[in-house]
Simulated assay, not measured.
Amino acid sequence: MTTGKTRVAVNGYGVIGKRVAEAIILQDDMELAGVADITADWRMQVAGGKGFRIYAGRPDASAEMTASGVEVAGNLDELLANADVVVDCTPKKVAAANIETYRKMGRKFILQGGEKHDATGHSFVAECSYESALGREATRVVSCNTTSIVRTLSALKRVGLLHKARGTLLRRATDPWESHLGGIMNTLVPEAEIPSHQGPDAQTVDPELDVVTMAVKVPQTLSHLHYWNVELTRTAVKEEVLDAFRASSRIAMVRIDRGLAALNTVKEWMLDIGRPHGDLYEVAIWEDMLKVDGNELYYAYMVDNQAIVIPETIDAIRALAGTERNGQASMARTDAALGIGRLSRQPTSQ
């Protein structure tokens, strides 16, 4: 019996995949068809404990998963047969190899930012490219850093303030749960080229952006930190820049003078207000650090690499499925389900 809801498969149950799956079940117009992976470790035990149907991402994974106590509902093809859209959250470069399977099964698919723009021919940030994704076979939700760049610069562009932007990114070395396996210690690693890849990647969403980025990996794992210098189209005052940022539900203003002075304190705030996994879905801009000097703007913000793309992925599902034609309406539904846009009511923001 059909429910009328979009049935979504999640292939890859890692840092992003588990968050996407949890977000899907909060949407009133979607249902989780199941999750696929090839691992037999604790992550699958947790997924099973949540009541998710688990599928083997490769034929050779099923026996090991079953032996470890994971109840396997079937293989990837069987999961896809019961889905309208598949969100691929497998590791970088693995997803590109899965495209042939998705196309063979006639399934719409969403890739994550680790894949190239050419893999789908479309890059997604809800505030900018929702309508152009409607009914497409596939899209790519851009990376966490690229998402933050497009969100913030687009907020300025919408009010006619953006001329060009230059940013420096301090990138976390690895995901927190894998920090015992690798990453960097007692050093900084500059990205080898200028611009770093995030600037050109932002232009796959909006080719009109005049943006250059530089990046360096730093020995921490909580989030990314961005510093931006923007040349505005005209002389402006701080309050109109803040109003431009505040107009986006997915940008949150935070203040150093209210105790949110570092990445770890913002993360602790997210845990204290009950966000799942302590996730910060918004870009957190330091309001009291932001400065406008004539037609120059300087600001810094935090990007939660594990969380920022989750609402974008939910909106991308609706766009591909064509169940909501209006991007702002989709964002409102996603925001309501995930609790986005409520940070302004916290005592840390004016």
Rank of each mutant, 00 (worst) to 15 (best):
I256K: 13
L170T: 03
K157A: 15
A9R: 07
E208C: 01
E78T: 11
K5I: 02
Q203F: 02
G278S: 08
G57F: 06
N264Q: 14
D288C: 04
E312A: 13
L170A: 11
L320N: 08
K108D: 06
P176Q: 04
M185E: 15
V216Q: 09
V15D: 14
T3N: 11
I256S: 12
P59Q: 10
H117C: 06
E312R: 00
D293L: 12
E324F: 05
R151T: 09
G74I: 07
V211W: 03
L297I: 04
T265E: 08
R43Q: 13
Y301L: 12
A33V: 08
V292W: 06
I25Q: 15
V72Y: 07
T120D: 00
I308T: 10
T147I: 13
A126N: 10
K116I: 08
D175N: 12
D84M: 04
A307I: 01
P200A: 00
L32G: 00
L338C: 10
D293M: 12
T334R: 09
R103P: 03
R250K: 12
G339N: 06
T2M: 13
H163V: 02
V266T: 06
A96K: 12
V141S: 09
G113P: 02
V8M: 04
G278W: 05
S68L: 05
L297V: 02
V283Y: 01
D279F: 03
G17P: 05
R19K: 15
S68A: 15
M253G: 09
V205H: 01
V72W: 09
T6F: 06
I54A: 07
